[in-house]
Design a protein around this nucleic acid. Sequence first.
DNA 1: TTGTATGCGTTATCAG
DNA 2: CTGATAACGCATACAA
Lengths: 364, 364
Amino acid sequence: MRPWNAPSKWERVNTKLVSDLNIHLEYRVPVTIKQIAAVAGVCHTTVSRALRGNPMINANTTARIKQLAEEMGYVPSAVALSLRSQKTFTIGMVVTSISDPFFGRIVEGAEDVARKEQYSIFLGNSRNDSEREIAVVDDLYRRRVDAIIITSLWVDNQHHKDLERIKVPIVLIHNQGDGEFTNSIAVDDVEGGRMAAAHLLGLGHRRIAFVGTPDQPKSNRQRLEGYQIAHQQASVAMDSALCFTPEGNSYEQRGRAALKHLRQAQATAVFCYNDRTAVGLMSACREEGLPVPKELAVIGFDDLELSRYVTPSLTTINQPRFKLGQTAMRMALDLLEGKEVQDQVLPCALVERESTAAVHAIID
Amino acid sequence: MRPWNAPSKWERVNTKLVSDLNIHLEYRVPVTIKQIAAVAGVCHTTVSRALRGNPMINANTTARIKQLAEEMGYVPSAVALSLRSQKTFTIGMVVTSISDPFFGRIVEGAEDVARKEQYSIFLGNSRNDSEREIAVVDDLYRRRVDAIIITSLWVDNQHHKDLERIKVPIVLIHNQGDGEFTNSIAVDDVEGGRMAAAHLLGLGHRRIAFVGTPDQPKSNRQRLEGYQIAHQQASVAMDSALCFTPEGNSYEQRGRAALKHLRQAQATAVFCYNDRTAVGLMSACREEGLPVPKELAVIGFDDLELSRYVTPSLTTINQPRFKLGQTAMRMALDLLEGKEVQDQVLPCALVERESTAAVHAIID
DNA sequence: TTGTATGCGTTATCAG
DNA sequence: CTGATAACGCATACAA
């Protein structure tokens, strides 16, 4: 029986002094090509070559080393590889919340593209905090990700300066800052907003409210702009009392808080900044016994899975989130390959469900 | 004007031949301590010490170097650090889907604990594929994460063997395999299932169905076991026709598919494997005009945010997902510190909402 | 066909 | 106080 039939023989253990507890902690240590080389009685260079299938190496040696590596449980160190190659095959991605299904879909799209080119994604969580956002980007760069994709960045002047030190390509999804930034992907918020309002106008509504959000200023402004364009195209006068942003710490809370204001303003329909806002509003309507869409038509934005399952199901503007992620990742990888890239604006689409209907009566 | 007032002077660029396109791609290269040392006219060791605030270094030199590093936009390389220290300060986490809000909350809990000890999380996506699961774990280990947390692993014999080569601590959340695995966290599925069924029994229901899932065998079995215990405790006979797992590619689809069977079996109430299954079922009920809870009481499991917003809002068994993540991460970090850890089973809780009510009549 | 030397960026050990 | 040297794991140019 050859010794390498007993894998436990290769198991190496190291000890470290844990000063807090004053104990010696034993830990298993990864197998390296040097260890394999020692066992095989060759130089580590040979092992390196053999494992990578270099044809210069004798076929027998190669086979022997490969088997040995397998038996010893060798797993190459991506850390060492990255240091040497100056490449991590990792794309950093900054989202405001990992548990928000909105971003989940975008990340899945990005991963779909990345995986096919052997890249992985390292997620950073900004928790919608502008300070933390730049800290997360810094951390990703510290880890030497090959490129960075950021969702909803507030690129103001300060950010712009901070981003200068980042020497890898940066792609922005839904940039909320005002300055120009070269590598950007977004959806057509203006057209989306226009479609939403036009849909309600087409149903005969004349007092259509817009419930906004404070944390995504640019999207908010653009969707509102679309709302205004639709009104102008339909030659319907607008009432500024109908456009407002309620107080609240979440989209749902702001949606709930909007109801009172909506009744006061005698809205018959409402365009909510996004689905989560609409869902919050609708649950308030239900509690107050206000029938949707009969007394109040509601339209959202995003087309989250959720919107299919609420009652009534939510009419909304679909945003191609998976594709957004795919496109952003494609752009990042193209930049790494030195290709020319172009900023992109993806189209939205109206999805009619049950929460909107023809105007019926004025509330109250 | 001193040269280091012109940061662009430090900007270094490298070129690489892109053979596909036969062009020379220019790319910016990160600043290293060596470059700083060259500019400052000292040894790189000194720079390293100065930047880390080593008191041995002259205060003036330290100040000068720190400022220079700032001006040159120095960001230390975590890759080099990791190679040197044999530690990445990264915990790998395997989830079946990144966009599933169920896991999002768990990851947030884990991150909450990790962040406080300067650890980051690297997410791997197994897409509920047993083959891919082990590939993802391998990849995480390749990257030399310090520990790995896996959700819903099917630890069978093959897996067990594959996991042997992984030389870092592994913590399992909701292990779906049968073998013993030392570092595990789970919720009390049996007790959760019992509470769900007991709730329905307490409302007078006697024909209670259980709609299962094929992809989480252990949880499924345990929740069903709880269901059985509740029936025994209440001395209510069970009908095996009431417990089944419909065909379908998603929880929602299986929920929808369950309705027909439920009517045939004359169920007056149903305990669904999870909220997503319940939501699918409820939307089928709505389409078929079957009122919930009047004609069919529905209870789910998990307590996703979603369940608050469907109509009627969903009665369910709360699963402490955030805490699950926190606990798992705590266990992983404790293992790294050589502390003793114990497997844990977290309690569930009944959350009564609108989708369950006293028994009314037999369907049809 | 295989071995030797070097470097990736950083810190630690040992000299000066 | 500061500098020279080695090491972490790996791949490659160059020698043998």
